[in-house]
Design a protein around this nucleic acid. Structure first.
Lengths: 202, 202
DNA sequence: ACGGCAGTTGATTGATCGTTCAACTCCGTC
DNA sequence: GACGGAGTTGAACGATCAATCAACTGCCGT
């Protein structure tokens, strides 16, 4: 199987879904940018939904290589790694004039009646992201309170990131994003302060 | 001017945009549920975008009456009012099987190239919501640290709410929403604890 | 009784959508 | 050099979309 055309279609669709969303992207859009023809697309995919599924699978399989690795190069401290990842999304916002944010989050809110398959792929992408944060929190060890529910805080970090992107896009203002991340940082600082108190028992 | 048909169209469009989003809602959908005809709609609105604008104006004008008042009846404590408002969104999620969340947030992420007018209406809706929270934080007075940036925390509350809804919808699980709100509650608790220390100076 | 206008009716338009399909090219196998 | 399947081409289809428009209705002021 010549996977070249298939991969080009997936990459192009990934770009377009990010720029214009799923519904606003037509098959013709994908084809013209890929310089392929409709028959080729339908040779590899039963329909448009399946192209979306392939895009979400590509995100799922590429998170380590394309998201975490670049954001974490030169950053060793586990807590700073969390904020380095958030800074990556910040850069994405800035370079697009606060237009495009997290592709998964946009799709999650755009698709009102997604397939079970699509919804599970969205969930897996979120879950992978959350797990990456959770690993950082685990690596922070005793700097965070021992009683802290690390999975929950990881979830919360994703929540803040997605909400912050939504507002930055709406206001077309990165300052909104920064203020939200600053509050999250203060939350972490308070937790670290609490942990300090724990480590010196009476 | 017979505003009855116009208002019925706006209300129907409000429902449909909430259920299916803006793009997935066709003019025909609105007309059939309103039991009106296309000419009537185009008599009141130049186009589909203008129906959306009218919907967002209705949200903007109805926030006090339809959102804050019901959520705050019987709740006097300003901080509890914040969480009562969040509980309102929780109810909305539960009664729809975690399908529909905040209509403004959904539209904000769905529309990738909105009119200036539409974007400003989205921003105004967010700003009004944030201001309502900010008023609660102000009313909490010395229970919160004096140095606390109340506007920023209000923004943060919206951020968490929107992000939590996004995840609850993706996972089709209200527990995800609850966990996120619980972390926000703990953030408030830590701030209140900090303020207690301030009020008893050495 | 009449004119004028707000509001309604619903058939119609042209564009665009996702999808189909028969014909075609290319290339490895026997 | 014939065969077959993977992959390509691009015209065509039916459905659906937002939007148009000329004809119509009912009401209000005069």
């Amino acid at each position: 199987m010549n996977a070249d055309t298939r991969q080009r279609i997936v990459m192009t669709a990934m770009e377009l879904f990010w720029e214009k969303g799923f519904q606003s992207t037509s098959i013709a859009d994908i084809l013209s940018r890929t310089q392929a023809h409709s028959g080729s697309l339908y040779h590899f995919f039963p329909g448009k939904q399946d192209v979306l599924a392939a895009v979400l699978e590509a995100y799922r399989d590429g998170i380590e290589e394309w998201l975490l690795k670049p954001a974490w190069s030169g950053v060793d401290d586990p807590i700073e790694r969390i904020f380095a990842l958030l800074a990556g999304y910040r850069t994405q916002l800035v370079t697009t004039g606060c237009t495009y944010g997290c592709p998964i989050g946009s799709l999650a809110l755009e698709l009102h009646e997604p397939d079970l398959r699509i919804r599970e792929l969205l969930a897996v992408n979120f879950a992978q992201w959350t797990s990456a944060i959770e690993r950082c929190l685990d690596a922070a060890g005793a700097r965070l309170p021992v009683t802290l529910d690390r999975r929950r805080l990881a979830e919360f970090t994703l929540t803040v990131m997605e909400g912050a992107i939504m507002q930055a896009r709406t206001y077309r203002d990165i300052a909104s994003f920064d203020r939200n991340i600053a509050v999250l940082r203060e939350h972490f600082d308070m937790l670290i302060e609490t942990a300090k108190g724990e480590r010196v028992p009476a």
